[in-house]
Design a protein around this nucleic acid. Structure first.
Lengths: 259, 259
DNA sequence: GGTTATGAACGAACAATGTTCGTAATGACG
DNA sequence: CGTCATTACGAACATTGTTCGTTCATAACC
């Protein structure tokens, strides 16, 4: 009996001291927060974050949008729930002062892969306050790794913030580039969407489609040489970064001088 | 006569070689892309990005939303226009190999301040592809600074990407924290929005309201000590970072090992 | 100068979104 | 068995982006 949804949301940010465990589970298939969260994640996973509407999750649960509001405060609350679920699945290593770099990098990579598995979901991560318990749990884990490594707490706190922001921004950019893509230049409206198998989402490595990269590279090379000399010359470098090289580079950059 | 809006948008990403200068200016006050962009920026500046709707800018121009579509492809196009205008106002220094760090940091700070002057506008920056000419211009400027400093082009390209992403994420977080804020805990719905002068936007230094920081700090200190030991202990460090200390820290982190 | 054609302005409307309201069903409890 | 609180749900409302058809002004042309 989830009581008031608002109360439930508050508890997710600052737990109420008296939290009795869930009682017996009912027999049928009643609407519950877990089922709603699962359905929402399924919508995002099979389509993308833009397709996550109250109606889409309601339809997946064979009901109407109004039924959700008995368990969920609003759409923002649903966003928090799915982000919390995502963060909850991250495995946090027990701090090892000797391997703190790879431990932090690993947590970041986990978060990145979770975000990429649900295209565009980082938008929800940006929109929510950082006091959700599940999000705080991973921050706690990273903080533990850094402070046991002997890093100044202030530095550690700011570094965690920076890393968290970067992971969100990186995955968001990849998801957006994978979907919308380029303006399909050339003549108007001739959208010869021929190639099958191009699902419009990043593959496992977060690589944006090869043809998209080539398209950007072509545009860079076509820029006027007087105002964009470096962009022209280093178009290859600017458009490179397949796989997660760019990601690893930046995380390494941030961890390089932390000690 | 702006021809086709779609053509105009394409030109902003890859200029058409034949671009005749604007002819005589009409006498009255015809709707034009500049006026629409100005109105859009005014809406965002006086309210926030959420208030930027086709109808709001149309109302500011004393017309209806349909009239805008003769000059603007769609809302995404309008987003591109305002981001382009913002980037266009940045002043790019002539590269000085001896002062490359402060030059890069300065450009980032300029971008940050522009974003913060228009709360939430970084959402639009994230949603657009990075081939807009005005955006490319600042990337070109930063690339020039880094390569003249003798930094490997590949490293420079990735660093610029990381910096750009971080600035957007940082400003977006600040704008969101300044607006929505916390769930106004305690009892339901008693929103005693008493304090006047709290406009709900970050002040000049991007400081999120002091009472908000205290609120977060209070929550951190109230966390269970067994599962959140570090968050509790270092709550002060986690919530610190007034002004732009956090921002300067992260940018410095990224620039530290670039050479 | 009169006619015509081209593009902009605009009102109305449509589809989709988040959300709320009133009501019916459903199950717990005395 | 009756009462009542909670959940489920259909219908509706307000707000978004966007399009359609029409009107209108201005420029081009003979």
């Amino acid at each position: 009996m989830p009581a008031n949804p608002r109360q439930r949301r508050r508890d997710r940010h600052a737990p109420s001291p008296s939290a009795p465990a869930a009682s017996i589970t009912p027999r049928k298939l009643p609407l519950t927060v877990e089922r709603i969260t699962d359905a929402a994640l399924e919508v995002v996973a099979t389509q993308n974050y833009d397709a996550l509407t109250m109606r889409s999750v309601a339809k997946l649960l064979d009901t109407g949008p109004a039924s959700l509001y008995a368990h969920v405060v609003n759409k923002a609350d649903l966003d928090e729930l799915i982000i919390g679920r995502l963060c909850n699945q991250l495995v946090l290593p027990t701090p090892d002062a000797a391997r703190w770099r790879e431990q932090i990098a690993d947590v970041c990579a986990q978060l990145r892969d979770q975000y990429l598995a649900y295209p565009g979901i980082s938008r929800a991560a940006f929109a929510m306050v950082a006091t959700d318990l599940d999000v705080l749990r991973v921050a706690e884990g990273m903080l533990a790794i850094l402070v046991t490594a002997g890093i100044d707490p202030q530095t550690a706190a700011w570094a965690i913030d920076a890393l968290y922001l970067y992971v969100g921004a990186y995955t968001l950019e990849i998801s957006l580039a994978a979907r919308g893509g380029i303006d399909s230049g050339g003549t108007d409206e001739i959208d010869g969407s021929g190639r099958a198998g191009d699902t419009g989402r990043p593959d496992a490595d977060g690589v944006v489609g090869r043809e998209q990269r080539d398209e950007v590279l072509r545009r860079f090379s076509a820029l006027p040489a007087d105002t964009f000399p470096n962009t022209r010359r280093y178009a290859t470098e600017l458009t490179s970064g397949t796989g997660h090289e760019r990601f690893d580079f930046t995380v390494g950059l941030m961890l390089a001088t932390l000690l």
